[in-house]
């Protein structure tokens, strides 16, 4: 129909060549946003969202965990089961926010076309994923601390080694938020992202709070597959009189490794979702 060739590969030979054909000097590109400043900007923007949208949900996350501990207080008297309940409930806060809410956030952002905003800015995909994941992991800090504190008081567990939360929250947070972001970005529909997030949180609840010794063999394998388990285990070990710090380090290393892999997967998923 047109007098201009539609063949993309013969542009320079097209009868009506554009005024700036390929090969002519191309315009200078504006600089890219660098990884760390861009990540900081995304992180800061996400943190500010907490004021508007997240605080009620953070309360829910904390109340859920505290409620579970109070409920379990009736059936658990102390010993290993009490440690499992407190550690599991504390890490559950991380699972609720970092896995469930982040999966929902990315699912909703993708479904509504919000990813276009980031995709039309010269920002490294990792900056968007890491900034958001970091912010969601940060949202969990107050709830996890409060839950662990109340749990120790409720079940007379030692407070001395709770400092380990300084490592547990970021590493379990990295693993779970990476998983949440990947689920949210990979799910073909928003509802599936929400469902995956909810299921992941339910798994973290059931398999984290219930003492591992009482679980059937196949369920124990599933428990071993869940990254939150290693955060729970690390916290359980820290309640010992003489904690096996090597084992704690090993547990946290698993969290770190899963975090690395899942955040890389989430970055890949973001790139795939944003640039079609």
């Amino acid at each position: 129909m047109t007098i201009i060739s539609a063949d993309a590969d013969t542009r320079t030979a097209a009868p009506a060549a554009p005024a700036t054909p390929l090969g002519a000097e191309a315009a200078t590109l504006a600089p890219r946003a660098r990884l760390l400043p861009a990540m900081a900007a995304v992180y800061r923007a996400q943190m500010s969202r907490a004021k508007v949208a997240r605080i009620p949900l953070l309360f829910v996350a904390t109340f859920q965990s505290v409620g579970i501990m109070i409920m379990m207080r009736g059936v658990v008297d102390g010993g290993p089961a009490a440690r499992a309940v407190v550690a599991g409930s504390s890490v559950l806060v991380v699972a609720f926010v970092a896995l469930n809410l982040l999966a929902q956030y990315f699912g909703q952002l993708r479904a509504s076309g919000g990813l276009d905003h980031y995709a039309t800015l010269p920002v490294p995909p990792a900056a968007v994923v890491l900034g958001a994941a970091g912010a969601y992991a940060s949202f969990t800090v107050p709830g996890t601390l409060v839950t662990a504190g109340i749990g120790c008081a409720l079940f007379q567990l030692p407070f001395a080694n709770l400092w380990i939360l300084v490592a547990v929250i970021p590493l379990a947070g990295a693993a779970l938020s990476g998983l949440g972001a990947a689920l949210g970005l990979l799910a073909p529909r928003q509802e599936l992202a929400t469902l995956a997030g909810q299921l992941g949180m339910s798994a973290a609840l059931l398999l984290g709070v219930l003492p591992a010794g009482n679980l059937p063999e196949p369920i124990r394998y599933v428990r071993d597959l869940l990254p939150s388990t290693y955060g729970v285990e690390a916290l359980i070990r820290s309640f010992d009189d003489h904690p096996d710090w090597l084992a704690v380090t090993a547990d946290l290393s698993v969290c770190a490794a899963v975090g690395l892999v899942s955040l890389a997967a989430a970055t890949w998923a973001y790139r795939r979702a944003a640039c079609r």
């Binding site: 949208a53 952002l109 919000g114 276009d116 905003h117 980031y118």
Partner: peptide, 10 residues
């Protein structure tokens, strides 16, 4: 673009 969902809560 037509969507503002990435900025809505800021």
């Amino acid at each position: 673009g037509q969507e503002s969902s990435a900025l809505d809560e800021l």
